[in-house]
């Protein structure tokens, strides 16, 4: 179990870097779909981050959190995209 324990901190750092990059896109825009895309990427990355942390600390506690983030993230992306699609239509 030694090799993995050396790899995991670097993996967690890299995922955090990936999330920072996505955050930059979220703040920068320029359009609304871009921000939705950045949020989508952020939640996918956070699932990977949670699983890596779970492996690091040898606990299965984080799986439920990852599963819930997967579900809520999907619903969130869907709701935001739907709002953009409908907001333009005059009903």
């Amino acid at each position: 179990m030694s090799l993995l324990n050396h790899v995991l901190p670097w993996g967690i750092a890299a995922i955090a870097l990936a999330m920072l990059l996505a955050l930059w896109r979220l703040l920068r825009g320029p359009t609304l779909p871009d921000r939705i895309l950045a949020l989508d990427t952020l939640y996918i990355d956070s699932i990977a981050l949670l699983i890596l942390i779970g492996m690091r600390f040898n606990t299965a506690l984080f799986f439920e959190a990852a599963l819930i983030i997967a579900m809520l993230g999907f619903v969130g992306t869907m709701a935001l995209s739907k709002y953009l699609m409908r907001g333009d239509i005059i009903e």
Binding site: A14, L17, A38, T41
Partner: peptide
């Protein structure tokens, strides 16, 4: 597998920026 997965996640975010 961890290295490969992290690499592709990072590349995805780099592309996003």
């Amino acid at each position: 597998l961890v290295i490969v997965g992290v690499f592709f996640t990072l590349v995805g975010s780099i592309g996003l920026v």
